[in-house]
Nucleic acid binder design. Structure first.
Lengths: 214, 214
DNA sequence: CGAGCTGGTCAACAGTGTGTCGACTGAATC
DNA sequence: GATTCAGTCGACACACTGTTGACCAGCTCG
């Protein structure tokens, strides 16, 4: 588990959780994820979450400091998975580095795809909530380092062309993935079929890193 | 000018605007843009807008149906400019198509950069307001058509490699630009200097379309 | 046993923001 | 001088957030 998000009540002892208390907490989280699958974040109130978990609104505030804190807890779990997935796939030694990269992008999509409602809600809140933003940038940072390192390595090998700073290229590529992820989940541009997205992204990544048509 | 956004009061005769009435409307728009340069959209209330324009809150509602409608009007003007800019630059006949494309990306950045506060606010609202989203997708659609056409043309000429559908590639590239635009304006990742962004994006675009290192 | 602590619960309150209603004004217009 | 109508706002109804204070049930320790 990751460190406790700061918006959560510090009062509650994390070490000695009451059974019933933890049940409530789980009920709130489950309710949030369920409701997010039905309507967007801004159309869900703390009252909805409380009622959904079978408690009153003040009691809700006993468990979470705000609606955002619930989302943060939900999102945190996904971020952890995504981080673990990236480290796993990119750390693996494999014959074809390009294939490894394509697979990492696929895993990225699958991890967030398994919780698209939460992912979309996080995107919705990102601009106005710095904690969610920082959580997200954690994943982005990991990708940026790995990708920049790859580009530089390929440049030294002579396989990749020189040009703009490797890190800048990496960040732009990652942001593309991020935006496409959200767009796909939000159902924007239905023209691009969801299965093909990873292939399209991989094409651009590999064109940029190695050159096209390999 | 573009068609009147639908959230604006239909009551007000667009054809016979009172001088003082138009002044008020302008005052509200100016106030909104000014306040957005100071704090994010969600921290601005209709009361702030009304007071800033020297009127009461109910009077504000005489001119705009909501806070979102103000942003929509503001954003609409920028969208028009961006559209005009794209058509202008990409329509120009020029020796080097790659340079033309690079220039178009630069103009895209400059147009929105001249109103970054409004652009950021639009980004903030995009997920929860379909009208803003549609306005934005208008620009994206124009770029998608042009870009897809270019890729297909280059493929026929044999300069561009075959692969994923041209339109899908185009959309991914455009979304990258979109995300980088917002990130730059929001001050995310200060590592990438703002001047270099266009160069980085152009590198990826041209790598994808023509192959790298040209 | 019973006094007291503690996690848990909620009715009621205070505050902030949105959007509407209805009455009012003052300058055209007839 | 009456009528109309864009423009204006005080006051209201409502929705949502976050807090306070009283209360209860179970545990624990003298």
């Amino acid at each position: 588990m990751s460190p406790t998000p700061s918006t959560e009540r510090p009062v509650r002892g994390r070490r000695a959780p009451r059974v019933s208390g933890d049940d409530r907490e789980r009920a709130i989280l489950a309710t949030a994820e369920r409701l997010l699958e039905q309507r967007p974040y801004h159309e869900i109130s703390t009252d909805d979450l409380a009622r959904g978990a079978g408690i009153s609104r003040p009691t809700f505030y006993f468990y979470f400091a705000s609606k955002d804190a619930v989302l943060l807890a939900l999102f945190d779990r996904i971020i952890e998975q995504a981080e673990a997935g990236r480290v796993e796939v990119l750390g693996r030694d494999r014959d074809d580095p390009a294939a490894r990269w394509r697979e990492a992008i696929g895993v990225f999509y699958e991890t967030f795809g398994a919780h698209r409602a939460v992912t979309l809600a996080a995107a919705e809140v990102q601009l106005s909530n710095s904690e969610v933003r920082e959580l997200w940038s954690k994943v982005m940072e990991g990708w940026a380092s790995d990708t920049a390192a790859l580009i530089e390595a390929e440049r030294e090998r002579g396989a990749a062309p020189p040009g703009a700073p490797a890190r800048d290229l990496a960040i732009a590529l990652i942001r593309m993935n991020e935006r496409m992820l959200h767009a796909t989940f939000a159902g924007e541009s239905p023209s691009v079929s969801e299965q093909d997205v990873v292939e399209v992204l991989a094409t651009i990544w590999l064109s940029t890193i190695y050159g096209p048509a390999r």
